[in-house]
């Protein structure tokens, strides 16, 4: 018998969060790590993503007490790995134009974890024209803008022109839905994440964009679910729940529930998943983060947590 979408979403989120908690040491920074972080994608980035998932579970507050405790422990773990923010501060001192300190910090600031020196430095760097005019993809510009919004670095004269940033994206053009590739799909999902602050502000989507997404999400979810692109499907389901009128997508939820592993790992795609725990973490951590976020937001919207 088909599982209702919300029940599936809850199971998926809960098990994903459990996996992230159980496997958290694989995301620990190597002992001799410096702010230079030679391999940021494989070590530093996963910490930020785990923090994202944990912070959203806490923000939404729809999880049970056991899960909230897991989320809190995860966030504490990540914060400690980053020296309570000191590593982010060091990194920004060394590379003042890099945006990852701000983007990573935002997930902690969301839950009121602050580092005073980092706050002062960020207040300065975000005010500089050079930083604001740096050449980046439009959806990345939105990522920085949302991180600044979460951290409170967008006050007064630094206010973000969301409409302009949105118009510069692929999604903002409401283009032909039949001409989209894999990379563009990810640009689109991230555009939605940042415009709505991960579903907190559905009104962050312009009306025409919301209508556009309502029309074409079913087609995109269908084609990528068919070929087992689970990571992208899960991101599309997050998008569904960032809309003012969230979509249900019961078939997609059921498929994701069916392929999630017993231990909570969500596979990235249809290829075989190895047995080595370090390898499993490296390959599928991101998708499991996405699953945790997707399930959490779906449950939250189903409970009517916001209009």
């Amino acid at each position: 018998m088909a599982m209702p979408a919300t029940e599936a979403a809850h199971r998926i989120a809960s098990q994903a969060l459990t996996w992230l908690h159980t496997q958290r040491e694989h995301g620990a920074l190597p002992p001799d790590t410096t702010a230079e972080l030679a391999e940021p994608d494989s070590v530093y980035k996963p910490l930020g993503e785990t923090a994202l998932a944990a912070s959203l579970v806490l923000r939404e507050g729809v999880a049970g007490s056991a899960e909230l405790r897991l989320a809190r422990e995860l966030l504490d773990f990540c914060w400690k790995q980053l020296g309570g923010g000191a590593m982010l501060h060091e990194r920004l001192l060394r590379y003042p134009m890099m945006t990852d300190p701000l983007e990573t910090y935002a997930h902690f600031a969301r839950c009121d974890y602050r580092h005073e020196a980092l706050d002062r430095l960020l207040a300065h760097t975000t005010s500089l024209r050079s930083a604001r005019a740096a050449e980046v993809l439009p959806n990345r510009r939105l990522a920085v803008a949302n991180a600044a919004r979460i951290g409170g670095f967008d006050q007064g004269g630094l206010a973000t022109d969301w409409a302009a940033l949105s118009r510069a994206t692929w999604l903002g053009a409401c283009p032909e839905p039949w001409l989209i590739d894999w990379m563009t799909a990810y640009c689109m999902t991230h555009t939605v994440f940042h415009l709505t602050d991960w579903g907190r502000l559905p009104s962050g989507l312009p009306g025409d964009v919301a209508q556009y997404l309502t029309r074409w999400l079913p087609a995109w979810i269908d084609i990528w679910a068919e070929i087992g692109e689970w990571d992208l499907v899960a991101e599309l389901l997050i998008v569904s729940n960032c809309l003012a009128e969230p979509r249900r997508d019961p078939v997609a939820w059921e498929r994701l529930a069916g392929i999630q592993h017993e231990d909570g790992l969500m596979p990235r795609d249809g290829r075989p998943v190895g047995d080595d725990p370090a390898e499993r973490f490296a390959a599928h951590h991101h998708t499991t983060v996405v699953a945790a976020v997707a399930g959490t937001l779906a449950v939250s919207r189903a409970l009517g947590a916001r209009s």
Binding site: I180, W182, M183, I223, W224, E226, I227
Partner: peptide
């Protein structure tokens, strides 16, 4: 069978 778009770094 579907031939839907997948990750293609050569196309990026």
């Amino acid at each position: 069978f579907s031939d839907a778009p997948v990750y293609a770094p050569e196309a990026a």
